[in-house]
Computed example of a mutant assay.
Amino acid sequence: MNWIFLLIVLLATLGGGLIPMVVRKIHPNLPIYLLAFTGACLFGITVMHLIPEVYHELGHQAGIYIVIGFFLQVALQTLSHGAEHGHTHLPRGDHDHVHMTPLLFGLSIHAFMEGIPLGFQFKDHAAMSSLVIGVAAHKLPEAFTLITVMIHGGQKRASLWRTLFIFSLVTPLAAILAAVSGSYSVYVTNIITYIVALVIGAFLHISTTIFFESGTKHHELSYRKIIAILGGLLLAFLTLIFE
């Protein structure tokens, strides 16, 4: 267990949530390009590092669990309204009336799931450090969206701080639980391998949704958004130097 990696994820979550709390006026294009960059980075790391790992461990069964994870994420969105990929599916104006409990529950399940691979023992030495980059990048818009929805819903500042702090702990705690339980039982380690495949499916859904939905009216790709996507993919490719 690399505690520095978990600290990076924790700080990325806190940082993403602090932006809407501290910055009074945010340029409307900032979330769009941040989403495109982080989504592309997460996609690249998932394809280049995580998918080969689970196929090596599970063989053809890996594909089955990746597909299940993809549609499990679709189901979670009925609770979280799509906050995992940095924006919600709520009609404009409905943010004031959104029930926070289902949103927090769905988003916390997702956050817990994405923490489990951080406690997994990858045979690819570059996988863990690369995964941390992808998850940390993903946490920025995820926490940003959560706190933004809460602010629009009229939540008090104390509630914002409390929610952000607790939410920022979910992923690191999941990683610790996976690492500790896996070290005591080979059976648990095997289960975690299947969970990693499920998380890969969720990552694929989130990252590809970001490409086509974030900040667009007709799913168009502006040249600025393309640049942001290419930047995220470049960062993902650079993780290959960890090999």
Rank of each mutant, 00 (worst) to 15 (best):
M48V: 06
I192C: 06
H60P: 07
I241N: 15
F120Q: 06
P172A: 03
I64R: 05
M21Q: 13
H152D: 11
L50W: 01
K139Y: 03
L11K: 03
G134H: 04
Q77K: 13
S183Y: 07
Y65G: 01
V67F: 09
T208W: 11
G63E: 03
Q77A: 14
G17E: 08
G16I: 03
F242M: 15
H205G: 09
L169C: 12
E53H: 04
I4L: 15
H87G: 02
G69H: 06
G119P: 13
L118E: 01
T13K: 07
M1N: 11
K217V: 06
A111D: 14
G119M: 10
V132A: 02
H89S: 15
H97C: 06
L35D: 11
L164P: 01
V188H: 05
M113N: 05
L11W: 00
L198E: 02
H95I: 03
F211V: 05
V196K: 00
Q77T: 11
F70H: 08
V98Q: 09
M100P: 09
M21C: 12
Q77G: 14
M100D: 13
M1S: 12
P20Y: 13
L198Q: 02
A83I: 12
E53P: 03
I241L: 15
V47K: 13
I8D: 00
L104D: 05
D96C: 10
H81E: 09
A36K: 05
S185R: 09
T101Y: 12
A137D: 02
I200R: 01
E84C: 12
L240W: 06
H95L: 09
